[in-house]
Computed example of a mutant assay.
Amino acid sequence: MGTVYYVGTCPHCLATKRTFTSCRQTLLRKNESGSRWRLQMSCNTCTLRVDVLLASAGLDGPLDGPGSITLPRHGGQIAPALPFVVHAVYPKPRAIPAPFATPLQPADRLSAARARLALGDFEACATLCVSALDLASHDLLPGTAGLRERFHRLRNEGVIPSALAAWGHFVRIEGSAATLLDDDVAEEEAQELLDFTETFLLFAFSRPGAGIAAPRRRAG
């Protein structure tokens, strides 16, 4: 029996470009035009499972071959010699939007941090939050090295208010992001850091004038 891989977004941990590995297959329908299969697959990041619905011009299932194959993305086709087509993947990722105008990468990190918190992986949640803050602050101040230095400058320029700066100091972002990740992270700490990250993104990108101020800083 072969092995099947699929690369996509996990609906459980919300990790993007993650590999899923086949567990079992179930025949749904077979007739003269081909066959349909449900393939159960496990996320290689969080180990939780998804169902991939496939259509094939042949009668064999995706696991019936001797080797390994990688399925195409939804709607794609592997090759004429192995014509499996992905029709759907369930469950679908439930995206919780980041604050308006947040750049794609920090928005993805924020979504993934929420998912890791829900799964009880508090250290991964903290790591993703720090990554979101680092990417977002770099987008605002690409010429300033280090999260700590960028955080100080954003505070001094009024991009984030003093109350938020004090909150950042409380969650140890202002002093050193690395110190937060050196220790075991409790659920309360992870939740606090997640709340801070979302609020930071809100002030940095969604408040009135934020979308205009950032390009002006880049140009300057």
Score class of each variant (00 low, 15 high):
2 G>S: 08
4 V>L: 01
4 V>N: 00
5 Y>A: 00
6 Y>K: 01
6 Y>A: 11
9 T>R: 06
9 T>P: 09
10 C>W: 06
16 T>H: 09
17 K>E: 14
17 K>S: 10
21 T>S: 10
21 T>L: 05
22 S>Y: 00
22 S>R: 00
24 R>Q: 01
26 T>H: 09
27 L>P: 12
27 L>Y: 05
29 R>L: 12
31 N>P: 09
34 G>S: 07
34 G>E: 03
34 G>I: 02
34 G>R: 00
36 R>V: 06
36 R>E: 07
37 W>Q: 04
39 L>D: 03
39 L>K: 09
39 L>E: 07
39 L>H: 01
41 M>S: 03
41 M>R: 01
42 S>W: 02
44 N>R: 04
45 T>P: 01
46 C>E: 05
46 C>N: 11
48 L>S: 02
48 L>W: 08
49 R>V: 01
50 V>K: 05
53 L>P: 02
54 L>A: 04
54 L>W: 00
55 A>Q: 08
57 A>P: 00
58 G>P: 05
58 G>E: 06
63 L>Q: 02
64 D>H: 00
68 S>Y: 00
69 I>K: 03
69 I>Q: 00
70 T>R: 13
71 L>H: 04
72 P>N: 03
73 R>F: 02
74 H>V: 11
74 H>C: 06
77 Q>D: 04
78 I>R: 03
79 A>R: 12
82 L>K: 02
83 P>F: 12
83 P>K: 08
85 V>G: 03
87 H>I: 08
93 P>A: 06
96 I>N: 10
97 P>N: 09
97 P>W: 03
101 A>L: 12
102 T>G: 04
104 L>N: 04
105 Q>Y: 12
107 A>G: 09
107 A>P: 09
108 D>M: 10
112 A>G: 07
113 A>N: 06
114 R>G: 11
114 R>H: 07
115 A>W: 04
116 R>T: 13
122 F>I: 09
125 C>Q: 06
126 A>R: 09
126 A>D: 15
126 A>I: 06
129 C>V: 10
131 S>V: 11
131 S>W: 14
132 A>N: 02
135 L>D: 14
138 H>L: 08
138 H>T: 14
139 D>C: 15
142 P>G: 07
144 T>F: 05
144 T>Y: 03
145 A>C: 00
146 G>E: 03
147 L>I: 12
147 L>T: 07
148 R>E: 15
149 E>W: 08
150 R>G: 10
150 R>T: 15
153 R>K: 15
154 L>P: 13
157 E>L: 15
159 V>L: 15
159 V>E: 15
160 I>C: 11
162 S>H: 14
164 L>G: 10
164 L>N: 08
164 L>H: 13
164 L>S: 11
165 A>M: 02
165 A>Q: 04
166 A>Y: 00
166 A>G: 12
167 W>N: 06
172 R>H: 13
172 R>Y: 08
175 G>K: 15
175 G>C: 08
177 A>Q: 09
177 A>C: 06
178 A>P: 02
182 D>G: 14
186 A>E: 15
186 A>F: 14
186 A>L: 14
187 E>F: 05
191 Q>K: 08
192 E>K: 14
197 T>Y: 06
199 T>V: 11
200 F>I: 05
200 F>L: 15
205 F>P: 07
206 S>Q: 07
207 R>C: 09
209 G>T: 01
210 A>E: 09
211 G>K: 08
211 G>T: 15
212 I>P: 01
217 R>Y: 06
217 R>A: 12
217 R>N: 02
218 R>E: 01
